[in-house]
C-alpha cells in the first residue's frame, strides 16, 4: 500500500469527495480509542450533532493511537511517530483533522507544532514514516470538535437547530485542562467560555464555575485513587454548590472520572456528589430534538435521561 502524497492531492481529494468541500465543512474525524469503548456515547452523539449542523465527519481511515499522555511518558519520539502517522493519513485525505477528545487533541496538536518548530525532530519523524511508506509535509490543521461547533459553525446555525430549548436548565460547563491548555489558541487557557456560549445558544444557562478548567486527576483515579478522588470531588462539589443541575464535559476521561465514581468521591470530600454528567454533544443533541438512541443516553452512569426528560416536561 503506497501512501505517498503529491502536492495537489489535498485540494483535489476534498473537492472530489464532497460537494461541501469548499466551505470548510468536511473534516477527517479522529474518534480516539476511548470512544471505541468506555466513551462510545461521545462518538455516537458527536456524529449525530455533526450531521444536524451540516458538518461532514469522514472517519480517518485506519487511524492509530494519538501518542497519548500515557505513551509519551515512556517513549518520546515513538509517541511523535504515532501522532505523525495520523497527521500523514489526514494530509493524504486532504482535510483538516477534528477530534472530540481533548487528550487526543492536545497530543496531535502538540506533535504538529513541535515537528514544525524542531527540524531535528522533523527529520527523525520523516525518516521513520518513510520506513512505513508514509510522508507528512506539515499541512494539517488539528481542531477540537467543540471549537469547530462554536467558532466555525457559530451561533446562527446552532440556534436554528434548537427545537427543545434548555429553558431553566442550570449547567456547569466543565472544560477541563487540555481543551485550552497549553496553547490557548481558540479559548482562554485559564478560563475558557466556549461551552458557556454554546449552552446559552441552546437556551440554557451556565452557573459561575471557578473550577471549570481545573484538573480532574486523569488516570490517577485508577493509579492514585486518593489523589484522583480529591480532585474530582472538588469539581463536583463546586458544581453542586453553584446550583448546577448537571455538568457537561468535552473530554472522555473527564467524563468518566466525573460520572463513574460519585459515591466514593463524595465520601472522600465529605459531600454528596451525585450529579448528572453528560458530554456537551448529548446536551446539544437533546436541544436539537434528537432522541435518546441517537445520543446514546442509555450509556450514562448518572440519571441523564431522567434529567432531560424532566427538562422537556418543564419547558
Amino acid at each position: 500500500m503506497s501512501t505517498t502524497v503529491n502536492s495537489n492531492a489535498g485540494a483535489s481529494a476534498s473537492a472530489s469527495t464532497s460537494t461541501r468541500g469548499s466551505d470548510g465543512r468536511v473534516f477527517s474525524y479522529y474518534p480516539g480509542c476511548s470512544q471505541m469503548a468506555m466513551n462510545r456515547a461521545y462518538d455516537v452523539s458527536t456524529r449525530s450533532v455533526a450531521a444536524r449542523l451540516g458538518l461532514e465527519l469522514v472517519e480517518l481511515e485506519d487511524w492509530n493511537c494519538c501518542g497519548a499522555t500515557a505513551y509519551v511518558a515512556i517513549r518520546e519520539e515513538q509517541a511523535f511517530v504515532l501522532s505523525a502517522r495520523n497527521l500523514a493519513l489526514a494530509e493524504q485525505a486532504g482535510r483538516p483533522l477534528v477530534t472530540a477528545c481533548s487528550g487526543c487533541f492536545v497530543v496531535l496538536n502538540k506533535a504538529n507544532k513541535y515537528m514544525a518548530e524542531d527540524p531535528e525532530l522533523r527529520s527523525d519523524i520523516t525518516r521513520a514514516l518513510a520506513a512505513g511508506s508514509m510522508r507528512y509535509r506539515g499541512t494539517v490543521a488539528v481542531r477540537h470538535f467543540l471549537d469547530v461547533v462554536v467558532n466555525d459553525v457559530g451561533e446562527e446555525t446552532v440556534r436554528a437547530q434548537v427545537t427543545r430549548p434548555l429553558t431553566g436548565l442550570k449547567v456547569a460547563a466543565y472544560h477541563g485542562c487540555q481543551f485550552s491548555r497549553p496553547f490557548g489558541e481558540r479559548a482562554d487557557p485559564e478560563f475558557p467560555d466556549t461551552m458557556d456560549r454554546l449552552v446559552n445558544w441552546l437556551g440554557g444557562e451556565t452557573v459561575p464555575f471557578a473550577l471549570k478548567a481545573k484538573c480532574c486527576g486523569g488516570l490517577m483515579m485508577t493509579t492514585q485513587p486518593d489523589v484522583g478522588r480529591a480532585l474530582t470531588g472538588k469539581i463536583l462539589k463546586a458544581a453542586k454548590e453553584a446550583g448546577a443541575d448537571c455538568v457537561i464535559t468535552c473530554c472522555p476521561l473527564c467524563q468518566f472520572n466525573l460520572e463513574g465514581f460519585q459515591r466514593r468521591v463524595g465520601a472522600a470530600v465529605g459531600c454528596d456528589c451525585a450529579l448528572p454528567v453528560l458530554y456537551f454533544t448529548q446536551l446539544m443533541g437533546h436541544a436539537f430534538g434528537l432522541d435518546a438512541r441517537a445520543l446514546a443516553l442509555g450509556d450514562s452512569l448518572t440519571p441523564v435521561a431522567e434529567l432531560l426528560h424532566r427538562e422537556a416536561v418543564h419547558s
Binding site: 527523525d124 525518516r127 521513520a128 518513510a130 520506513a131 512505513g132
Partner: peptide, 15 residues
C-alpha cells in the same frame, strides 16, 4: 507498517 516505523525511530532517532 507502524512496527517498521517504530523500529526505524529506535535505530535512527537522534533523541
Amino acid at each position: 507498517g507502524l512496527r517498521r516505523m517504530m523500529a526505524a525511530i529506535e535505530e535512527n532517532g537522534s533523541k
